[in-house]
Design a protein around this nucleic acid. Sequence first.
DNA 1: TTTGGTGCAAACTGTTTGCATCTTA
DNA 2: TAAGATGCAAACAGTTTGCACCAAA
Lengths: 161, 161
Amino acid sequence: MVQVDTQDHVQRIFSDYLERNGHRKTPERFAILGEIYAQDGHFDIERLYVRMKSKNYRVSRATLYNTMELLLDCELVRRHRFASDKAHFEKAHANRQHDHLICEQCGRVQEFCDPRIQQIRKTVSEVLHFQVQYHALHIHGLCSDCQNQRPAHERDRQTHL
Amino acid sequence: MVQVDTQDHVQRIFSDYLERNGHRKTPERFAILGEIYAQDGHFDIERLYVRMKSKNYRVSRATLYNTMELLLDCELVRRHRFASDKAHFEKAHANRQHDHLICEQCGRVQEFCDPRIQQIRKTVSEVLHFQVQYHALHIHGLCSDCQNQRPAHERDRQTHL
DNA sequence: TTTGGTGCAAACTGTTTGCATCTTA
DNA sequence: TAAGATGCAAACAGTTTGCACCAAA
């Protein structure tokens, strides 16, 4: 099963990372990673907290925030700040670099890739002598559903949020 | 004087906008706009609040937040969310669309333009049927100063922040 | 057994809201 | 003079921190 393989794989990556950096391997940390990789799409801390609570995990928000820092550091998750005040996260492993279309009407987030962004990064680093680490391209507008004016209640709202 | 011309011009745009939309022309609103256009670079609400207080304007944070909504709506300012939790703003009038390089070390924000971003917007709208309103491309990394490891205290910190 | 990690609650920060007062139209 | 806008302070939401307890190494 692909699902199990991915879980095994990321758990091992995380385990190695913790060991290499002298962090302890706590059950909470692995449970959080497991929960993140068991779901699809974007999430925020509160969502993750509620989901884990409802599954009777004993976790605190503080630990979630702490663990996200570790997962960001070993690149198993990515953090985004779209427009709202809160941070959004997504799985990073086996999930190629991509950018985001954000619908201003329904809040849906859609992923896309365009190779030209790579060329822009290259130019910036060569011409402006800026050492690129990562980028975020957010294109805001109306998704096809919202252009058609379909009333909000007929649609799945915020599939990725 | 260019400075005065710009001020006159944006004040007129704002005045027309307020009138057109049935909003009142209060001295606070024009003072805020004036203060924004009298300074360069990016700013956040707190910075603007402190600056206006120090000039003995009697403004509240609430009015600043309210007025920013109006200025965003008539496109005299743009709002950005880089990585930190707070919003940053910049003048939008007579300031061509551009993107941002954000230094992870010193927090400095540098502007740049690349025509290929326009092509990406076009492709997204044609191929994915997404009606683009605006975009934000943030490239994070190290600015040339920080690559050279110059200690932070030798540099101007956060010139644009 | 030591020290880093945890849960909880309190603190903090940026933003929004409620309300009495003021002021533009 | 009535609807909107204001300043202030309290409320709010997301995140961080302090601390006593717990458990990996």
